[in-house]
Nucleic acid binder design. Structure first.
Lengths: 136, 136
DNA sequence: TGTTTACTCTATTAGATTGATAGGGTAATT
DNA sequence: AATTACCCTATCAATCTAATAGAGTAAACA
């Protein structure tokens, strides 16, 4: 299940990417346009800023804006920040690897085998899509 | 994240599929071999039986056994029973479709667009793999 | 027939996570 | 200096997960 956090984050990024100019957009505007709880959105945009996707400007006329060209924003990076690991089990995660406590041997683990294929399939989608591809 | 339920269910199915004959295997044996809480495994095997993957035999010499040939058991079906929807959002789910409450128009929704691709990528993996493919 | 075996079912629980809300603080612009 | 809007902390109800406990029931076998 995709978390609301990721869903809202993606919508907000798409909203910013579809702006004509790169003027800052207020949180309240995005929240209203995308039906998102404003306070919740605040925390999401904050984490996107801290991870280098967004810039912000304070004071009157302030708001958030995209730092990079939407074509340069890979979905792999966005998803890892918003949703966390792309893999469904830590033992096949590239960026968040962890050994499964209950599994004695990954090489012969049927779950590992399947989840490795799933991970690769997902990675291919996320790698081949940028923020620009999400805009209509 | 893959739930423990699904993980254990897959391991149990793979364990049963790797048996030489089709004699019933006791829950306790599977639980021990795969490091699974026996009581938790009980409920998982029960749901796999109710959904037509497993048969069970009571009394001495009883246990669970596969009903179909592992080659005939599609991962799509297994995953839907154990984990639920394959799609990450209900609005792109084939078997569990639901409209998103917050989304006015699926056709122009950036999240919908991306999650549709992800769903298809996952479906392809699950459709092209049977229980037999998980065995070493 | 009676006992054992092992599946079946219901209920309960601690813990974690999620999504949302409230309230105040702070920096930058005008 | 006032306003605007970002920034941060804390809290909370609801939900889900994983595990556990205990009792019930059907089938096999001596």
């Amino acid at each position: 299940m995709l978390s609301k956090k990721t869903k809202y984050g993606l919508k907000a990024l798409a909203y910013l990417a579809s702006q004509k100019d790169q003027q800052p957009v207020q949180i309240s505007e995005i929240a209203k346009a995308e039906n998102i709880s404003q306070k919740f959105l605040e925390s999401i945009l904050l984490s996107l800023r801290k991870s280098g996707f967004l810039g912000s400007k304070k004071g009157k006329g302030g708001g958030y804006y995209l730092i990079k060209d939407p074509k340069e924003v890979l979905m792999t990076d966005v998803m890892r920040i918003l949703e966390g690991p792309i893999a469904m089990v830590p033992c096949v995660s590239l960026n968040f690897y962890e050994k499964c406590a209950d599994c004695p041997d990954e090489a012969t683990c049927s779950v590992n085998k399947l989840m490795l294929m799933v991970r690769d399939a997902n990675l291919e989608v996320y790698r081949n899509n940028t923020l620009a591809d999400l805009i209509v």
